[in-house]
Design a protein around this nucleic acid. Structure first.
Lengths: 267, 267
DNA sequence: ACTCAAGTTTGATCTATGTCAACAACCCAG
DNA sequence: CTGGGTTGTTGACATAGATCAAACTTGAGT
């Protein structure tokens, strides 16, 4: 592999030949909503392109908020933390997504972003973006739409963190990854995890050991096949039932049990 | 009680004499950001004023998203729910706050709002607001600021739901209420709760019984005085330590214990 | 190819908090 | 003022999932 390509510090101006038009995530930047002259405009607001390696910080809590980041390739986790060091992962982000749009009000980053693997981003100057948005209603609405989407995601996560069992959380997680891959025209039943068990557990509000145990439980039941970080979903329906129906696991127990659980479900 | 007053459908045009200028929450609508001619403009986008009694639905999940609501008086809870009926309260809202701005992207309400007590709202047509915003950059930015604030609030709540102990959650909650009252020039140490123990517990991701127990524990320790729904905070510092410092309660235990906990903290 | 740190898995044990149940206090509506 | 429904409180007990500990696996760097 090209040595220069993996240098995290390197601002790859060398690749400037790659315009936004040629960029693989162009279609995902398009929702920026600029209708005509898109290419020139986008080029104009990109401050720099940068590469981050696994674990490197893209932005940190408390830093002045001067840019948002479009992920060209790779993946990123974002998280918030208590002052005594506990952290809560609030999202995983992949190519084509926009990073850092929260924090717009405070002028300070309220979360931290770290690359999960080698990741390329376009850094977009927030003032230039803001100024462009002022002249471009469609861009304004696109930004609002992105933030609104973020809020919806957070609402689902809060519901999960506050009210779901560990098994429901893991099933929900696998399915949400699946849906996301499907949307990008990747296989919805077979994919790689770019995050560790620890990250998954943290995100879902459970211990990493619990994630492992539930993975193996699902595997024992034939619902999935998981080798290291490669996941294959065999029984999407069953997973869906577990994810959405509180009582699914009670029923499963009842099938191989005394039937008492079933009566409990009926009540 | 006047039959008309309790009709939730009633558009209280009778009170139209009250312009936005006269409205008690005017200063809180001002951040809408319209600089000149504020009054006329605000009047123009208000679809109707309405009153809701305790438990009445202001908007429900799945309904078409056509308005946002400014709370003139009273208080409201918002929540999301699983399809099998479990709900997660995502926020409590008081006079001067704007309701329903999430859901902007989907065109469908993704959460439900219910009055906690008799509550007056101004209903703002979303299309008119959107159109006004297009011509008014300061309004655009205000809306973005409000959404961004919502995201920050959600991040804190996710951290709480995913990583904090029950005691930390309750202390955090009391202090956040306190801060909110202070911001509105009410006493930060003495206030009424408009929500039930059940709502508080749901919001914090713990059982209502746990809320009760922790309230009485705090009271036994002299930190607070709680009679029914009236709260008085006596030891803000101690509450702050509990809310922000994971080990605070271990230390408290250690003070009156064997010292083993203290050693654990040191490690 | 080898090494070592990081990540993963599994088992044994512990505990914070949920659940269930009974009761007490409160608040309207009549 | 009075009765019944709602809300809050307290205790006893159960348990999902955390924590601790000990292999085992893997893959990045030498």
């Amino acid at each position: 592999m090209d040595a220069k390509a993996i240098n995290p510090e390197r601002d790859d101006n060398a690749c400037r030949a790659v315009t936004c038009n040629d960029c693989g995530v162009y279609s995902l930047c398009a929702p920026f909503g600029v209708d005509e002259d898109v290419n020139a405009v986008l080029e104009g607001i990109i401050k720099r392109r940068a590469t981050f390696r696994r674990g490197e910080v893209i932005f940190a809590m408390g830093q002045p908020f001067v840019s948002v980041y479009a992920i060209k390739s790779g993946s990123v986790k974002t998280f918030v933390s208590t002052d005594d060091g506990r952290i809560q992962v609030t999202g995983f982000h992949v190519a084509g997504e926009l990073l850092g749009l929260n924090s717009m009000s405070s002028g300070i980053h309220t979360s931290e972003a770290r690359a999960l693997e080698t990741t390329n981003v376009c850094e977009v100057d927030i003032d230039r973006l803001d100024e462009l948005a002022r002249r471009t209603p469609s861009l304004q609405r696109a930004l609002i739409r992105i933030m609104s989407g973020e809020i919806e995601h957070h609402q689902e996560l809060m519901l999960l963190l506050g009210k779901k069992t560990a098994e429901e959380r893991v099933a929900t997680y696998l399915l949400s990854l699946s849906r996301r891959f499907a949307k990008r025209n990747f296989s919805p039943t077979q994919f790689q995890l770019s995050m560790s068990r620890g990250d998954i557990g943290n995100y879902l509000g459970i211990a990493e050991e619990t994630v492992c145990r539930i993975f193996t439980r699902f595997e024992d039941e034939g619902l999935v096949t998981i080798r290291h970080r490669h996941v294959q979903l065999n029984e999407m329906d069953a997973l869906n039932r577990i994810a959405h129906d509180h009582h699914a696991h009670l029923r499963r127990l009842a099938e191989s049990g005394s039937g008492e659980a079933l009566r409990a479900v009926a009540s």
